[in-house]
């Protein structure tokens, strides 16, 4: 069974086509990396899975995107519930202007949970999951802006985990971070794989190689090659992939 599946997906910003006939199937509890040169459509594709592109005026999708065998673009789908199931981590850490605690509790609160004890427990587990607990446990009431960039990003991951999604989308989650924070997040991704299905956009070939099980290479809105990460990096079938991963263009 596939966790995520996209069939013949086209996507348009106004009249310009950003994605052309994308077919991908993603297995549960795997990490999938999306790579490709800037502007090739990675983010656009990633944001299809939690219908984030709906927010942009004048966009259009055709084809089907299935999560847990349900068409998420079908009529009557509740987008809020979908987004609860599909968490997202952004390129730059973007905590809310709230306390550390409230940042993580946010997703619970907006989804109607009011039980204080439950929230406290869940916040603690989530922060522990991202290995941030020891660093913040004494300042949960402080503003999230007081944390370092790397800590903020881990907090944002904890925030996504708190509502227990089954999929986590990450759009270049480490591109704004220093190497040490990056390493921590990569280790975290490896841990999270046990419970979640992860799709990650990255510009860093080494990172893709280190964290992902499968890799999809995009070029100008097309899916050029999609394969087991090891295979794709060591033995790509298509020359353009070869050129990209060896840094000959892009």
């Amino acid at each position: 069974m596939n966790k995520i599946e996209s069939r013949n997906v086209d996507f348009f910003y106004g009249s310009s086509q950003a994605l052309k006939n994308i077919n991908i199937a993603i297995k549960p509890n795997t990490v999938t990396a999306l790579i490709g040169p800037s502007g090739c459509g990675k983010s656009t594709y990633l944001r299809l899975f939690n219908r984030m592109n709906d927010l942009i005026d004048n966009t259009r999708i055709s084809g089907t995107v299935m999560i847990d065998d349900q068409d998420i673009y079908a009529k009557g789908v509740n987008v809020d519930s979908l987004r609860k199931k599909v968490g997202m981590v952004f390129q730059k850490p973007n905590p809310f202007p709230k306390t550390i605690f409230e940042n993580v509790a946010y997703g619970l609160r907006v989804n109607g949970i009011t039980d204080k004890k439950f929230i406290t427990e869940r916040v603690e587990t989530s922060i522990k999951q991202v290995a941030l607990w020891d660093e913040v446990k004494d300042k949960l009431k402080k503003s999230a802006f007081e944390l370092s960039g790397g800590q903020q990003q881990r907090l944002c991951i904890a925030r996504a985990l708190a509502i227990q999604p089954s999929i986590i989308l990450m759009d270049e989650p480490t591109s704004a971070l220093d190497p040490i924070s990056t390493a921590k997040i990569e280790a975290l991704i490896y841990e999270l794989k046990k419970e979640y299905t992860i799709v990650i956009v990255t510009h860093n070939m080494q990172q893709a190689g280190r964290v992902s099980d499968t890799t999809a290479f995009f070029y100008m809105g097309e899916l050029i090659e999609y394969d087991n990460t090891k295979t794709l990096f060591t033995n790509p079938k298509i020359e353009r992939t070869q050129n990209y991963i060896t840094g000959r263009f892009g």
Binding site: M52, S81, K84, M88, N94, Y106, A160
Partner: peptide
């Protein structure tokens, strides 16, 4: 977007 992505309306 972060808020909406958490299922907030």
């Amino acid at each position: 977007e972060a808020s909406l992505a958490l299922g907030a309306s």
